[in-house]
């Protein structure tokens, strides 16, 4: 199942995000050999400090098995900066109707072990469906996503092939990376749902997610009493927005 986490509810799910950063470290540093910064076994970059939108997959035990991160292309995002090599020096797309998805990954090790309750393919499709539906519901027409060739093949196999690519394939660590375009149409969502036989709602409510993760529920409740969203009690209205202020470019 999938949980959608952003600035409005992340105080409830800090430990899910913590597990997500660990999964990203295992995938992007250990497995793919990308030059990402790892601290205490967690992969966190400056875009994580910009309050992005996370889509996170959990298995029946409540363990994080997949994740992806979304940012608006009108503001700071990875293709405009970190991944600019993929675009061969060309300016990235900038549109109110396109979001960028990065750090798309699935815990293949956990899902390939004996007794896993779902498959890599199914977990990937669930994550994609939740991402496409979240984007569609937000009025987003297209996603530009930075992926490696393995993920590209997975997308193609799941009847979810990108309709085009931007820039060129560039070496990155042990593998390479490319930027693909996906539309968030009902047609595509239907195809992926059909491929993986996903007929029900894949996104959990906050309450259901807290139930699935007893630890999170405890932290969530504890946090609920003490956590105030940064800026909520600030006396300065609309200070240059939290997290964006110290980012060059």
């Amino acid at each position: 199942m999938i949980i959608v986490i952003d600035a409005a509810n992340r105080h409830l799910f800090e430990d899910i995000l913590d597990d997500m950063y660990r999964l990203r470290a295992r995938v992007f540093s250990d497995r793919l050999g990308w030059e990402v910064t790892i601290e205490n076994g967690r992969e966190i970059d400056r875009f994580d400090h910009l309050d992005p939108l996370y889509i996170v997959g959990l298995d029946v035990e409540g363990e994080v098995i997949s994740c992806v991160r979304l940012l608006q292309t009108t503001g700071p995002h990875m293709l405009s900066d970190v991944f600019s090599a993929i675009l061969d020096g060309e300016a990235p797309l900038r549109s109110s109707r396109i979001w960028e998805s990065t750090r798309f990954c699935v815990d293949t090790a956990r899902l390939s072990r004996e007794g896993a309750d779902t498959t890599v393919s199914r977990a990937t499709c669930e994550l994609m469906v939740a991402t496409l539906e979240t984007c569609r519901d937000a009025g987003i027409s297209d996603i530009i996503t930075v992926i490696d060739p393995v993920m590209n093949r997975v997308l193609k196999r799941s009847d979810n092939a990108p309709y085009d690519y931007v820039g060129t394939v560039k070496p990155m660590g042990k593998v390479s990376a490319l930027a693909a375009l996906l539309d968030c149409t009902d047609e595509r969502i239907g195809r992926v749902r059909n491929f993986a036989a996903l007929h029900d709602n894949v996104v959990l409510t906050d309450a259901a997610a807290l139930e699935l993760r007893p630890v999170t529920a405890q932290n969530g409740l504890k946090n609920r009493e003490v956590t105030v969203l940064p800026g909520q009690t600030s006396s300065v209205a609309l200070s240059p927005v939290i997290g964006l202020g110290h980012v060059p470019g």
Binding site: D6, D51, A138, A237, I242
Partner: peptide, 23 residues
């Protein structure tokens, strides 16, 4: 009210549109 308006506080840090029923 702009100092405390919860719609602004939350939306300012959000990526997706914030329906006020979610606040």
């Amino acid at each position: 009210y702009h100092l405390i308006d919860p719609t602004l506080r939350i939306a300012q840090r959000s990526i997706a549109p914030i329906d006020w029923s979610r606040i």
